[in-house]
Amino acid sequence: MAHIDLFFSTLSPYAYLAGNRAEEVAAKHGATLTYKPFDIMALFSRTGGTPPKDRHISRVEYRAQELVRQAKKLQMPFNLKPAHWPTNGAPSSYAFIAAQNADAGDLGKLMHAICRSVWAEDKDIAEDAVVRGCLEEAGFDPSLADSGLLLGAETYAANLEEAVERGVFGAPFYITDDGQRFWGQDRIEDLDLHLSGAL
């Protein structure tokens, strides 16, 4: 059985635009999927990247155009300048890790709900009430937002180290069990083709 590790940031607009397509690909191929939320801002400095606020204007302008284009292509609501970005992604990541350990709801739906809160609903995912709402929407106990914080912090930090070690430099980032790496929501089709044996 194939396996996919999905490295993502709850702050990433591209993780939002991925929707649940990776989950659909995994289901299509009978693949298991493990989610690994990590600190994207910390990753940039570790892997030669630059945080959005520090990028050259040409990159800033291109990113602005491309995000809007991709959202239109995918027919997804999108706010290029959300009210609460950047914010602290740790609380939502800790809650996600607690939910993954609880194994009771829909993790793909939870990831999308958190990211959608930022990029389409102008909510602050550093706020407990927002995280609780996302957990409930995805079929998890909202109280998970308050549990496993130490384990969440340890796993969040470990996911960052694993990301650096395994060649991750952005989000979302998909790694198959045979070591193939796919960066970005626009590479999910390639992930599908690889699992089909076509790539």
Results as ranks from 00 to 15, higher is better:
Tyr62Ser: 03
Pro82Cys: 11
Gly133Cys: 11
Leu67Trp: 05
Phe182His: 04
Asp186Phe: 09
Glu165Ala: 15
Ala98Asn: 04
Tyr62Thr: 07
Gly108Glu: 02
Lys81Pro: 00
Ile125Asn: 02
Ser9Thr: 13
Ala129Leu: 12
Leu199Gly: 04
Glu127Arg: 15
Leu160Trp: 02
Ala113Phe: 13
Leu74Cys: 07
Leu199Val: 12
Gly48Leu: 14
Phe8Cys: 04
Gln65Gly: 09
Ala22Asn: 02
Val118Ala: 00
Asp103Tyr: 00
Leu11Trp: 00
Ala95Asp: 05
Pro51Ile: 14
Lys28Phe: 14
Lys123Asp: 06
Gln100Met: 11
Ala90Phe: 01
Gly148Gln: 04
Asp141Phe: 06
Ala126Gly: 15
Ile125Leu: 10
Ala138Lys: 10
Gly148His: 05
Lys73Cys: 02
Gly49Lys: 08
Thr155Tyr: 00
Ala71Arg: 07
Val68His: 07
Leu107Trp: 00
Arg55Gly: 06
Cys115Glu: 08
Pro37Phe: 08
Ala120Met: 10
Tyr156Leu: 05
Asp141Ile: 11
Ser9His: 13
Ser58Cys: 02
Ile40Met: 14
Ile97Arg: 01
Val118Ile: 15
Glu66Gln: 10
Val164Gln: 01
Pro86Tyr: 00
Ala102Glu: 13
Ser93Lys: 11
Asn79Ser: 09
Arg132Thr: 13
Met41Glu: 07
Asp128His: 14
